[in-house]
Structure formats: C-alpha cells, structure tokens
Amino acid sequence: MEAINLIIRSIFIENMIFAYFLGMCAVLAVSKDFKASIGLGLATLFVMVITVSINYIVVTYVLKEGALSWLGEEFASVNLSVFSLHIFVAVTASFVQVVEMIVEKYAPRLYNQLGIFLPLMAVNCAVVAGSLFMEQREFANIGIAAAYAFGSGVGWMLAIAVMASIREKLQYSHVPKPLKGLGITFIITALVGIGFMSFSGISI
C-alpha cells in the first residue's frame, strides 16, 4: 500500500519536471516530436528504476554510516557517504553504456529510433536526482525505493509526452517572434506546472 501511495505521489504531486524541473534539458531538446519523447521517456524510466535500485543496495550496504558493520565490528563507525556522488554517477554512466550495447545488439531498430538520447541518459538530471532523493529520504527497503523510481520515471515520461503534444499543436499558432521556440516552451512548462500544483492539495 505504501508503495502505491509513493508511486502516485511521485507521478503527480512530486513530478520530476513540473515540481522540481529536473531533466529539463532533455525535455527542451526532445519534446518537439511526440514519438521520440515517448521513446526517451521509456528509456529513462527503465534506467531510473534499475540505477536507483542498484544505488539503494550500494548505499545501504557500503556507503551509509554503519553500513559496513557486516564486515566486522571495527567497520561499524565507517561513513563513506562522501563518495555517494561518485558511485551514483559511475553506476548511472556504466549502466547506460551496458543498456546501449544490449539494445544495439538485440534491438537495432529501437536503437536507431532512440539515437543520441540513449547515451545522453547518463547526464539526465532526473536520473541522478532520483538516486540523490533516494539517499536523502532513506527509504525502508529496496521495494519502496524501486517504487519511488518507477513513479518518478512514469511522471517524467508523462510530462515529456504532455510537452511534446502541446508543442506539436503550437506549430500552427502565431507566437510573437522573440518568444518563438525556446521562450514559449518555458512559459508553457510553467503553466502546465501551475496546473500540476493543483495536485499538491491531495493527501494520500
């Protein structure tokens, strides 16, 4: 039950894009076309769930204060959380690399569709932020952490899909010249964000 609540919270109330504006770079770059944005969203969702789970294990059994106590009494006071950023980045980057190689080998069509977006995942703020929030919130077990990552990933996908469909429609409207392209995208994101804020009153 807790996991389901967490998923719904992280999709709507704490949406990565509309509440924290994480992963905006990718949204602004990719959200011109609906299909590509769904592809990127799915890839991000997948990478996010796996990396957050791996990082949860690493944080719990290696990095946290006292996490190394399974090695013996003398390690109980070791706190390695200074290195958490290194680990998160390394895990994300290497996992993205592995996914890229697997997809290239076994699903070349999908690989061609995703193109440059796959390697870009390694520096997607939303993915790294997923791990950082996971460390900050100290989830009880790996299932909860994975549920959080799943919810955030779905929320991110939803958001990029919403932005892409609005921008596709926008091609037919008359926008003031200096506002064209980037400017109007920012303002639309803000307006959708305000819309998403209405979810924040919901308590589950």
């Binding site: 504006f21 010249k177 200096p178 506002l179 109007i184 920012f186």
Partner: peptide
Amino acid sequence: LAPMAILLTGVIIWIHRARNKDLQETE
C-alpha cells in the same frame, strides 16, 4: 512557487531575444 522561476526565465529569454534579433528562431 517553482513554476514562477521557469515563467520568469521565459520572460528573460523574451526580452533578450527582442534585443538580439539574430538569436530569434525562424521556424
């Protein structure tokens, strides 16, 4: 609230591009 940051950035971009015409997007 968070959305205002992004709206203000949009406004800054608007002003900046109104002054620098060569940055405007044509498409």
